[in-house]
Design a protein around this nucleic acid. Structure first.
Lengths: 253, 253
DNA sequence: AAGGACGTTCGACATGGTCGAACACAGGGT
DNA sequence: ACCCTGTGTTCGACCATGTCGAACGTCCTT
């Protein structure tokens, strides 16, 4: 049974030490707890600095963990959510007959991290990476209402008009968001693209934190009945998928 | 000028690759882009797995970034906030003449990551690490109102009574939280400890995310006037310090 | 059954990592 | 001003450790 690579183990121990320290550490404060000679510790730190995992303060010569390590984690968050949700998203497109969107908050927009084509073979464009307005889409509304910390507040948004139906009054939008909070899901009828509507439900991790949103999008007349209410079966399918995905993230609805 | 440690550089490159991949990767999918022979790549992965930075799926043998890397980042978040806020917290204790608390959400409580003594030389105990109830303290109220995603909802809390003034009705608490949202800061008069009150303001990162809370605590009669309203100058000092800390976190009020 | 792809182990070997000695610099004390 | 101490960094001898070709075992496809 082959062993492990000592220098890599030492580097990892160093990163853990820096991660759990309450402040930037000096070389001797790193070498001593790890029982390493100073030049050995210095060589490892120099390498970690070169690869961008550790920063060194120019004046004090003290070392801290670098932001690159944090970025490593959040990039993985995005892909982690995608990999955990895509099977359910695919399945939802099949059962609903509509296209399905998986989104995450990204500043003043919602960014699609996964997109499933409407399964009718019609010509479609892959929308992964697309950024949608928060106020005029169901996925965006869902985040505005249920992840208010992760996105700007309604009055901070540039409420641009996309169609004749787009809500651009803060007061009206705020009322809609209150309804979303009450129901637990969001809806939108032709506000972003004429004739196209959507519904959306939040994805939560443990502790209830909303980290993403699952949405169904399609022609208004297929998603909604005459009174502007989505078909109950469709809402049920959406909420069920969102619930399953959330459970897989350590959360629930 | 000495060089860097090759094996550590290779390990870092591997972590970056796994971090930016959209899915778990097989050994060959890791070795090829890095131009490493498979046994070399395997040795590095085996080590990264041993130190807890990489996970390997038992069935598929594919590799992914491990949660330990994410934890490294969030531990640093705690200490990062502390190091960025402590100067302002110290200064606020000096200008207000009261003890100052710096807290972060921690499940169903707010945990103090920094505590500044009341600067009058009276006997005091260091409270760093102490966990305070969300519903009965100003720092907790602030998180309940302004970081609702990071903490449980009011009706999910165990509304324990600490003094005769503690609010233990969900409805009343919810009204208080609405007032906090309206004002942008929280207050508490003798609800956690008899005769002791506090006020608190949120600390935000870029995007408005509330990640912590700054609070002032002291005798009720020193912080509040007869009508139960905090002295305006004290609120101003608190909000100014919170604003400065938030700016340093890439955020604003 | 044969072949190919891939994860993992083995072990020879050479090179890359280690680390004692030395240097440079800063700060404090006399 | 000089000396001492502490600490970050460099140098280079040396050998231990990391590398990697060959081989093995497993799984999948034809």
């Amino acid at each position: 049974m082959p062993g492990t690579i000592q220098s890599i183990e030492r580097a990892a121990a160093m990163l853990r030490l820096l991660g759990s320290a309450g402040r930037p550490l000096a070389l001797t404060e790193i070498a001593a707890p790890l029982d390493l000679p100073r030049p050995t510790a210095h060589g490892i730190l120099r390498t970690l600095r070169a690869v961008g995992f550790v920063d060194q303060d120019r004046d004090t010569a003290r070392y801290t963990l670098a932001a690159a390590l944090r970025r490593l984690g959040s990039e993985w968050d995005r892909h982690d959510l995608r990999s955990r949700a895509m099977n359910w998203a695919d399945s939802l497109a099949g059962s609903s007959g509509q296209e399905v969107l998986l989104g995450m908050p990204a500043g003043a927009v919602v960014e699609l991290v996964h997109h499933v084509f409407r399964p009718d073979g019609s010509p479609q464009r892959l929308r992964t990476g697309e950024q949608l307005p928060l106020h005029a889409t169901a996925v965006g509304r869902c985040l505005l209402a249920l992840a208010p910390i992760a996105v700007p507040r309604p009055h901070e948004l540039d409420l641009q008009r996309y169609t004749g139906r787009t809500v651009v009054a803060v007061g009206t939008l705020t009322e809609h968001l209150a309804a979303v909070r009450h129901r637990g899901w969001a809806a939108e009828l032709g506000e972003h693209r004429t004739g196209v509507g959507g519904i959306a439900a939040p994805l939560r991790t443990g502790g209830g934190l909303v980290v993403g949103v699952l949405g169904v999008e399609g022609p208004v007349e297929e998603l909604f009945n005459g009174g502007g209410t989505p078909h109950p079966r469709l809402v049920e399918q959406l909420l069920n998928a969102a619930r399953e995905i959330s459970a897989g993230l350590g959360g629930s609805r």
